[in-house]
Amino acid sequence: MSRLSAAELIVVPSPGVRIGPVSFTLGPGDLLVLRGPNGCGKTTLLRTLAGLHPIESGQLAVPSTVAYVAQGPEDEEQVPLGVDEVLTLVQANDGSARSRADARHAALSDVGLEGRGARRMSTLSGGERQRARFAAALLSPAPVLLFDEATSAVDDEGEKKLADLLRSRLSTTGRIAVVVTHRPDVWTQPESTTLVLPAPSRRPR
């Protein structure tokens, strides 16, 4: 069973700026909603959970493989990827080619992108691209899913559906998710955990 936990975790995004200490423990099916004002370090903390940023002190236990959906498109513009190709990048090689294609088709359908598998990512709207990346994360075999404002360009109704979809997947698969968002009304549920980061503390240099 996968677990994701942090104990007295402190992260330093830049000299003189400190995030934490942060502590939480997440088990199978758990969803952590990460909130806070702009610049408080939500993205840095998420990148730390993804293994992309070093920890300053404290303890962090994360599975070796996580699905990370960044706030921006990373270098997506440089590579002319199709929507179906994006899903292929993260999909496990299990089963036949046909079953994998069916799984990709179903994943796109789940996020409201049915019939758009052959489209090039750059031809989609911002919200549609986020839906595609969301579908890719759900399709990946990683036990932990990290979303950094990954639905910020999706319309209200669509974001609610994606939130419901994620919660449903977490409960059926036992995976863990951390979601950075500025829309707590969409993502926060009685059963979810919320962590609100304060404005970062600045130490004298």
Partner: peptide, 9 residues
């Protein structure tokens, strides 16, 4: 295309 996501994976 996705260096950070790839590293995290």
């Amino acid at each position: 295309a996705y260096p950070d996501s790839a590293r995290a994976a």
